[in-house]
């Protein structure tokens, strides 16, 4: 980047909201006259915006049968964690924690064993239903064997004008009442791709909201989702870029502290291919787990 210190400082001053009128006008003049300044200013702004998506991270525990160590670089394995891009949480940790008690939350078909399982489009109309994009419960296919049981969920890839593919999956989970101020919840799922030559991003998100389960649904989603998503009483996201050539299952998980008053947890699983990817082969999800986690207190 061939920008002078002064030009970069002008960009900082503007984006920090402390630029004077003269400094703003100087930067504006540069942006109008010089396409390279314009581009670098946008890069600076986009980077700042992206960093805002990086939340303080905390490790979460590897879901069962995690096989990522087979390809994970040793350094990252030793650290036990790897940061996802723009993620609120670490992808997952290296080993299970002694004394951690997990209580699974009731949800529909966590391992997609019912081949007749209905899957509606869009946001769930009620709790305990999987909804999302075009998907189907399938047995082993395309060289991918289910991670858990005999079936898995195949996420189709569709496009809208350009090859950015983002199949999604939702479920609303009702949270039982609790007198505790905070509860810790772990959400995890396993992802695989039928196309080892693609390098998709796998995403897990969870949002805790105060709304009662019966009040959630497409109407609520349409009215509140974007605002609730930022103002939900707790939220977490993790994502992971599957390396080229990796056809194995990847277990991805997050942990979040949820206030006791939360009534529902909306879990989201998504896959996004690179913008330039021409891949059209499906992705698979299996072995979804959502659990309350109780860690042993520090002596």
């Amino acid at each position: 980047m061939n920008r002078t210190e002064h030009e970069l400082e002008l960009m900082r001053l503007y984006l920090d909201g402390v630029a004077s009128l003269e400094e703003t006008q100087e930067l504006e003049s540069l942006i109008v006259k010089d396409a390279s300044v314009r581009q670098d200013f946008l890069r600076y702004a986009h980077l700042d915006s992206a960093l805002a998506g990086v939340r303080r991270s905390q490790p979460s525990v590897a879901p069962r049968r995690s096989i990522w160590l087979s390809w994970r670089p040793l350094a990252a394995a030793a650290a036990g964690i790897v940061f996802g891009m723009f993620c609120t949480s670490v992808v997952f940790g290296i080993v299970g924690q002694h004394g951690v008690k997990k209580t699974p939350l009731a949800m529909l078909q966590p391992s997609f064993e019912d081949a007749q399982m209905p899957l509606a489009k869009g946001f769930p109309p009620a709790p305990a239903l999987w909804t999302g994009d075009v998907a189907k419960v399938v047995p082993r296919e395309n060289g991918v064997t289910p991670e858990d049981g005999h079936h898995m969920l195949r996420l189709e890839t569709t496009t809208y004008g350009k090859p950015v593919l983002f199949p999604r999956l939702y479920q609303i989970i009702a949270l039982p009442p609790s007198g505790r101020a905070l509860r810790e919840i772990e959400v995890s799922a396993s992802f695989a791709s039928a196309d080892p030559d693609s390098s998709p991003h796998y995403t897990v998100r969870a949002y805790a909201v105060n709304e009662a389960p019966e009040r959630l649904g497409p109407d609520w989603f349409a009215r509140h989702w974007f605002i609730q998503r930022d103002e939900s009483i707790a939220s977490a996201e993790t994502c992971f870029e599957n390396p080229l050539g990796n056809a194995k299952w990847q277990s991805i998980g997050l942990r979040m502290q949820v206030p006791g008053k939360a009534r529902c947890l909306v879990v989201f699983f998504g896959v996004k291919n690179h913008a330039k990817s021409q891949a059209r082969k499906p992705h698979y999800v299996d072995a979804v787990q959502v659990s309350f986690v109780e860690s042993p207190s520090i002596p």
């Binding site: 984006l15 920090d16 909201g17 630029a19 946008l42 702004a45 986009h46 915006s49 992206a50 805002a52």
Partner: peptide, 17 residues
């Protein structure tokens, strides 16, 4: 699909995160 790009664009227009 366009959310992150929009966020970056808006960030370029609006002083302060």
């Amino acid at each position: 699909e366009h959310e992150e790009s929009l966020r970056g664009f808006v960030r370029s227009l609006v002083p302060t995160l």
